[in-house]
Structures are given as C-alpha cells and as structure tokens.
Design a protein around this nucleic acid. Sequence first.
DNA 1: GTTAGCACTTATGGATAATGAGTGCTAAAA
DNA 2: TTTTAGCACTCATTATCCATAAGTGCTAAC
Lengths: 346, 346
Amino acid sequence: MLTKRELMVLNEIIRSYTETGQPVGSKSLQTTLPMHVSSATIRNDMAALENAGLIMKTHSSSGRVPSAAGYRYYLDHMLTPARVPEADLQTIQKSFGDDNYHRIDDIVEQSARILSNLTSYTAITLGPEVSALTLEGFRIVPLGGRQVMAIIVSSDGSVQNQVFTLPDGVKGEDVESAIRIVNDQLVGMSLPEVAQHLQTDVPAMLMRHLTTPDGFLNMFGDVLKQAVTERFYVGGRLNLMDYFDADNIGELKDVMRIIDHSDELNRLLSADEQNPISVRLGSELSDESLKNLSVITARYAVGEHGQGTIALIGPTSMPYSKMIGLLDAFRGELAKRLMDYYNHMQ
Amino acid sequence: MLTKRELMVLNEIIRSYTETGQPVGSKSLQTTLPMHVSSATIRNDMAALENAGLIMKTHSSSGRVPSAAGYRYYLDHMLTPARVPEADLQTIQKSFGDDNYHRIDDIVEQSARILSNLTSYTAITLGPEVSALTLEGFRIVPLGGRQVMAIIVSSDGSVQNQVFTLPDGVKGEDVESAIRIVNDQLVGMSLPEVAQHLQTDVPAMLMRHLTTPDGFLNMFGDVLKQAVTERFYVGGRLNLMDYFDADNIGELKDVMRIIDHSDELNRLLSADEQNPISVRLGSELSDESLKNLSVITARYAVGEHGQGTIALIGPTSMPYSKMIGLLDAFRGELAKRLMDYYNHMQ
DNA sequence: GTTAGCACTTATGGATAATGAGTGCTAAAA
DNA sequence: TTTTAGCACTCATTATCCATAAGTGCTAAC
C-alpha cells in the first residue's frame, strides 16, 4: 500500500514530466512538492514507487519517469477531470458557428477540426453509429444518357448516393419496379437487416418482377454498403509529427497509415463501452508504433439517434486531467449541436 | 561555352548524386566517366563548371553537387526521357484493372495511387478541367421531411449533389418551377457562364415565378460551386517524409500543409502551358519549405473533354529522365482510360 | 591541353576528460 | 520508526584533441 506522500510524489512526477518531458529528480521534487521534506526522504519514497513498478529510471543514475503502470494507476485512482477554461468553451461555440450544416457529417467533421485546434493533438470523430439506423427511402434519379443516381435515405436523414451507368437495354419500367420493390419491402428495416435480405430473398424478388434484373442488386448493394460504413474524420493529422524524432520516422509513418485506414482506426477506438470516457496507453495496445502515444476515447449520446465517438491521440505524457475535462465538455456540446440539426431537419 | 567533356562531367555528377546522395569527387568521376583522363583534368573541368554556376561544393574541400542552375541546364539542354520498362507499363495496366469506375474522379484518384506506388514519390492528379464543361441538367429530389437533394449534371457526365433542408412553407410547385427555370434558361451554358447569370438575371427570374424564392438561389449556387471546384487527388503523401530529416520537421509540416490545401496546390501546379511536361525546381518556387523538392507537371488531353494535369513531387535530386518518361507514358494511358469511360457512359 | 605532385582544407569518428544531475546507502538525529 | 545529512558512485552530456580520409587548388613538367 502506498502512503499519502508517495502518492503525492507520483502525482508530482507525472505532472512535472508531462510539463517538461524531462526525468524528475529528488531535488527538484523538493521544491515543487507542497510539504517540506529532505531530498533523501523523497528518494526513499521514489524507491518505494519504483519497487511498485509505477516509476522508472532512464538510466541507473537518472531521475524518474512514470511507467505505463504508473500512468494507469494515476488514471484509475488519482485523476480528476479539470474544469474547462471559459475561453475554450467560447472557442468551441464560435468554431461551430451558427452555420446551417448541410449534413450531420459536416458537424462531425468540424468537431475533429475544433478538437485538434484546441488541443494541438490529433482528433478523430465518428458520427452516431449507423447500425441503429433504418432504411427510410430509396430513389433512382435519371441523369441523362444511361446514367442514373441511386440514393439511399436513412432514418436520421443522412443520405448516400452513387452514380451508375445502366447496362444496355434496361427498361424504364424496370427502374420503377426496382424502386417500388425496395421501398415496399425494405423500408423501415434496420440497415444491417436490409443487407441481410439483400443476400437472401431480394434477388429472387428482382428476378420475378424485372425483365432485366441485372445490375440493380449491385446498385442498391453498393449504396447500402456506403450507408453502413462508419466514416471517420481526422483533424490535426500533422500534429502527430511533433511526437516523433528523426530515428522514429518509420513509426510516424506507421501511425499515419493507421490514421488513414478506417478499419485500423476502428480497432484503435473500440474502447470499453462501460466508461463514457476511457484512456488507453499506447503500451497497452498491440502496435509497436503507438508505444509513446495514448488514446482518449469519449462516447456521446444523441437521444434516440444512438451514440457516437470522439477521440484524441497524443503523447502518453499528456495533461490527462485537462484533456478529459475538455472531451467531457465537448461531447455534451456536440450532442446538443446534433440534436439541433435533427430537430431543424424534420 | 562548355566543352563536350565538361558536359559529360556535369551529366555524370548529376547521375551519381541522384543515385548516392553524396557529393561527387574527381577521383570517383575518373572511374565512372566513359573516357580516360586524369583526376587533375577532371578537376579543371569541375572548376569551369563551378565558375559557370552549375555545380557547387558543400564545403571548401568537398566533392561537388549540382546547383539549381545545374539542374536547370540539365533539364533544358541535356535530358532525354527514358524508355519506360515493360514491367511498369504492365503494373499501370493491372492497377487500373478493368473495373467499371462509377465516376471520372475515381479513375483520376486511382491514378494518383498508381503513380505514387510506381515512383515512391508523391503524386497529384487533377481531372479534366471544369471550365470547359457546360450545364447538362439540374434535379431536385425530395428525400422525405423537408429535405431535398439538389443535383447538377455536367456535360461530361460528372455529377455534384448536396442535401438541403427547405425553409418552412416552400410549396411543391415552387420546387418544380425552380427546376424548370434552371433547365430551360441555363442548360447548355458553360459552368462559368451559369455562375455569371446566377449573379445577374436569375435572382429576378426566381422572384417573378416563385412565391417563396428564398433558398433556391443558394441551393443552386452551392452545388454549382462544387461543380466548378477543381478536385485534387494526392497519392503517397507519406513518401514526402523520406526527404526531410530531424531538424526539418517544420518544413515537412509546411509541405504537408500545402499538399492538403487545394488553393496552394493549384499555385504549385500551374505550370507553363506550353510544354506538355515541365519541371520546376523547389528553389525556383517561392516557398522556402520546398527548396529541396521539385515538381514535375504533365498535362493530358481527353479529346474534346479538355485537359487535365498529373504531377509528381519528389526530391530535387530525382532521376528525371526516368520520371519524365514514366509520366509521358502514364498521361497517354490515363487519357485512354478516360476516353473509354466517356464512350461507355453515353 | 594534360598530368603528376604536393600543400592545404574540412568532415568524420574515436578517445579522453571534465561536468553535473542524480542515485543508493549508511549512520546519526528526531 | 521515520527523517535527514553526508558521501561514494553512476551515467549522460559536452568539449577537446587527434588521426584519418576524401577532396581541392595550384604549380611545374610533359
């Protein structure tokens, strides 16, 4: 069991290391700790903390830096979210502006920008999850020539579209029939259900009612796939570059690659669903290239429209208290903005 | 005036420096030059070249590296494009595949990927220029609730769309009228012309025929703006990281920022229209951060559909001969692919 | 015009030493 | 039992010196 003073030492080591990036020695702790004890006493405490695996040396006679376990202990037992400065709240408000956003995703994308500007880290945002959506409508719009646009409208008002070139000899009434079949049979189902039906009974249905069923299945399938694909927005990609030095350019590249691949991002952000805000240290993740980073993930809820995710990626030595406070405030603000959008849309 | 042997020395310095990245000395030139002369003779030639400003030393007793003027001279007077290896041609073919691309931009985007993979540099591609396009059609599709999608079709079959929420109290017949006005009055004009009219007589026209004209002008204007915006595709962004070292991370960031801003890219790629393929050295550009890079720009023509641009960004010490040969072959292939798309579409 | 020879310059890399921040341990003080 | 002063020890960092190697310019001979 750790003594009260040992905890204070740990806390101060984390604070100082976050601020300066330098290992922290007993002498400097003496001046920054709130009580007065000799440096020898602090050294004893530090030895205890090191024994407990919470701090470590970079070499045999160096000051101490927090270990992964140290951060974890801090995060789980000691951290309290900081109040968000009034200025930051105002910046958020102002950055959202009172634009009429055309699409939900515009708001979500803007969120990534705001968060990265505010923190100087990399922000990732994700709209309300798509699995909760149902199919609201399907349109096929002739564009001229043999081109048409297929459009899917989901229950939250989000829209996906894709342009297709119809195969030779497709008749107009077939297009009408295809639209009718989808709207009659599939509207109201959840998008995953629709995808299911696309595999099973829809092909037969199309065969029965259309003289030239070719292409319609793919057409609808393609747009549907777009609609069920989670879209990640990344803000402040380049901020990552501040946390790698010359010999680690390879790792930086790896991380950038992860950031640019939504399936990898998905893995990265799939935090435990219990906590609304959770922190994962890079050393707890499988990727070697993330070892000096960590990820703070926050979930936000937009009434019956489901939950979404926002996240920050920054160095493991991050001012967690401040960042968690900020994310907490931001998720509230984002939820409010999205609610406004939904209300305004109907 | 430079002697024949001096030119050969210059050529060999550029070749060797491109290959090794090391300054080139008189001894090593002795072994790689095709004729046999003593190193002292080569030193004399090098002194002449340095006098002419074509090569320079990194320090007083170092070998020589090409200067900006040296590269420029090489590019303007000595370079001949290399034949493209059969393997590369096949890679291009295979990478395009025989997919049915939905949109022109999909082909253009894929081009950026192919080029960056093939060269390990950063590739930028740009579709056929939009100013040649005319307006082919305008659609407004009701999506449910007060939401509609506005769609512009251009003469090349490219499509832009945007979702809007109609203001309260807009009547269905007004939507019909708006569609009719645009299609009757504006179709067939070039997109810039349409933009012009949007400023002048269209507002009055809408006022005359609609009971609730609010919003329609913006709606059409927004989508039109999308349609006349050049879209840049970038492949191999991360390859840029190979050409900056630890102390230049700042510059790397600057370059990345340029790459991500289409207006800056536009400036970067606005090569002289004379040459189908032109090279600009970073030192000839205004940005300090580009000083060690250069940009090869190639134009491609797709029949009456206008011209487009592809470009490579890489280190100033690039194998220009090879790259120019490759770009030349690629622009032909891309033009062919786009032609196929247009023909297949109609 | 070309070449051999030579003095000179500079980057690079290793060895050595001084400096300083920090540690652990011991024994005395509280 | 806890805290503290004192001290020997460790290691990264930095500077200095030195040898080496690659390269140059110049001069005089070919």
